[in-house]
Simulated assay, not measured.
Amino acid sequence: MAETAVAPAEQAGGKAPQSLDEVMLAMDVVDTLRHQENLVSRELSEERRDAELLERLRQIYRGQGIEVPDRILQEGVQALKEQRFVYTPPAPGFTRTVANAWVNRGRIGRSLLALVALLGFGWGAYHLGVERPAQQRAAQEQAAAERNRTELAQTLPSALEQGHEDVLREAKVPVARERADQILADGRAAIARQDADGARQAINNLEILRADLRREFVLRIVSRPGEPTGVWRVPPRNPSGRNYYLIVEAVSPDGRILSLPVTSEEDGQTATTSKWGVRVTEAVAMQVQRDKSDDGIVQQNRLGEKRRGSLDIDYLMPVLGGTILRW
């Protein structure tokens, strides 16, 4: 044990530094001691335990064919006691955090890049799927509101007054002028309450009325081969009675067959059609039937006439007013 005390003293007295091989050998001794110290009883005194450790180390290295001087073995035991070659991690702190971040910069960088990409994707999806459509809707609504304000201030009032004047120029009957005046009043009221849709509807109604007034045709009884000229029905509320209908079509002055909206008295349905049935008295139905029986052609085939400027058909034969769409 005297050598153990002398060696450090000699080093402290200014001996030449140890070679790298000796330092590495001493580190190996310390590592071996860490693994083999449990072979030595912890109940032994410190001096006896050191002797046991030295003897055990000699046996280990001799078994490996390595001759290690006792000085190196003693330095290893002393270094183990002083924990000279033990790594003690630095305490947590800012410097340690920065160092760890630098060491792991690759993994951290990839994580940050993935996070940035995810945030960018989320922002893009929100912008394209929510924010941008909302902006477009707001812009469209603003443009529509501005367009409505302009139309309500200028376009719609002018179009409404012009439509009314056009109807009055065509109208030749009081009922048409009264209807035009009512539509005009409805349109002005819609403009006053800033209802652009209501004003447009009034303008459209005036256009429809004007088209009705300009339309002219002859209501002709159908008498073509293979097509019925008249039919009869048993009314649901009067099983013992019969309703007679003449099948007619509207023919314009240039010979075109017109399609007109007609409402059936049987079910209340309205449809645009080129042929429909008009209810007449039994006497008129029999008269038309006798006319057709002579030569298969209805000579007196004009049931009525719609003149330009009027809304109603002037019937040339007595009619009862009901119509049907199917027979």
Score class of each variant (00 low, 15 high):
180 A>H: 03
72 I>D: 02
161 E>S: 12
181 D>C: 12
108 I>G: 09
264 S>P: 04
307 R>F: 05
268 G>P: 03
62 R>Q: 12
201 Q>D: 04
297 I>N: 12
150 T>N: 06
145 A>R: 09
309 G>C: 05
267 D>Q: 09
43 E>V: 08
81 K>T: 13
320 L>G: 03
25 L>A: 01
161 E>G: 04
71 R>G: 06
154 Q>Y: 13
158 S>W: 10
306 K>G: 04
64 Q>S: 15
246 L>H: 00
302 R>M: 14
66 I>V: 09
180 A>S: 11
47 E>S: 13
26 A>Y: 05
127 H>N: 13
279 R>C: 04
185 A>L: 08
50 D>G: 02
264 S>Q: 04
37 E>D: 13
2 A>G: 08
311 L>D: 01
123 W>R: 13
49 R>Y: 01
3 E>N: 10
208 I>K: 09
107 R>D: 11
210 R>L: 07
17 P>I: 07
98 V>Q: 08
269 Q>D: 11
179 R>F: 05
107 R>L: 11
290 R>T: 07
284 V>R: 02
14 G>L: 04
303 L>M: 05
198 G>Y: 01
164 H>A: 11
91 A>Y: 14
4 T>M: 08
136 Q>G: 05
322 G>R: 07
299 Q>T: 11
16 A>K: 08
229 T>Q: 02
209 L>W: 00
186 D>V: 11
182 Q>A: 14
255 G>Y: 05
318 P>F: 15
299 Q>P: 08
132 R>M: 10
306 K>C: 06
302 R>H: 07
213 L>V: 00
89 P>Y: 05
307 R>A: 11
184 L>H: 05
161 E>Y: 07
97 T>G: 12
277 G>V: 01
